[in-house]
Amino acid sequence: MNFEHLIPILVSTVAAATPLIYAALGELVTERAGVLNLGVEGMMLVGAVAAFAAGIASGSLVLAFVAGMLAATAVSLLFAFLTLSLQTNQVATGLALTLFGVGLSAFIGRGYAGMPIERVPRLDIPGISDLPVIGPLLLNYDALVYLSIALYFALSWFLNHSRAGLRLRATGESPTVAHAIGEPVIAIRYLAVMFGGAMAGIAGAYLSTALTPMWVEGMSAGRGWIALALVVFATWKPLRVMLGAYLFGGVTVMQLYAQGFGVDVPSEFLSMLPYAATIVVLVIICRDPKTILLNQPASLGKSFHPDA
């Protein structure tokens, strides 16, 4: 295998990693505010179907992504209302959101199966995107890939260097203290959940318009859950989310190329790889309970009632 063969693998790795990056970075912000939203899979599916439907109806990919974001944000609001205003159990409500999202997206998408949609175009700068090696490897992706990297930088700055990011983290570490010094804990958490929803919506939209430009029921195939695992794997740090997402993108792509390289393993076993890898990675990270205790937002998953 020479370098020529490696380029398409690396390129598809980046594409497979991109939806994971959006979903996981969104969930990271939600969890840093102390809210565990297990509904990522459901929000992604709702985003995917809404983007696809809007793309078909309007013919505009920008509108498709806007629709995906809005739809997923809307269902995330449902979750926020239940867990933050009505204090329901976050685990149960998140599961409900996923089950609801699977059902809702299948229902909305019933007429769209098998329809073609224009794929998100790749960057194509004449003369530059054609450069050997660097061209295809760095300068020939769609806009969402570059935006995902920008999102990483923006979020790292926001969480670690901005005042608002500090308030968000304080809310996640100790809502009682944050409330006592006058922070609007519930409002901050609402915004964090909605941000997670919007990012899951982009991730879903990317699935149905860029990665595989079509609508298939349940097309996220567990990516929302892998994104949740990525946040744990990343010990709630954005940089490690990026590394983890590219690692998983690589594992996903490997199954497609393995047979091309003469690896004689039934395709079903190769398809198990990303899920098995998720388990292995979780075990490695969680092995030492201190790693989790030191990094996990202290109030993660716990309801907070300002009057109590």
Partner: peptide, 26 residues
């Protein structure tokens, strides 16, 4: 290993479905 059972048990759903697919196709 203190690994979250939600994520592990869910990942195993996908693995089980692939295993079933392998058996009935193979």
């Amino acid at each position: 290993f203190h690994t979250n059972e939600i994520l592990v048990s869910l990942m195993l759903v996908y693995i089980a479905q692939q295993l079933l697919g392998y058996l009935v196709h193979g």
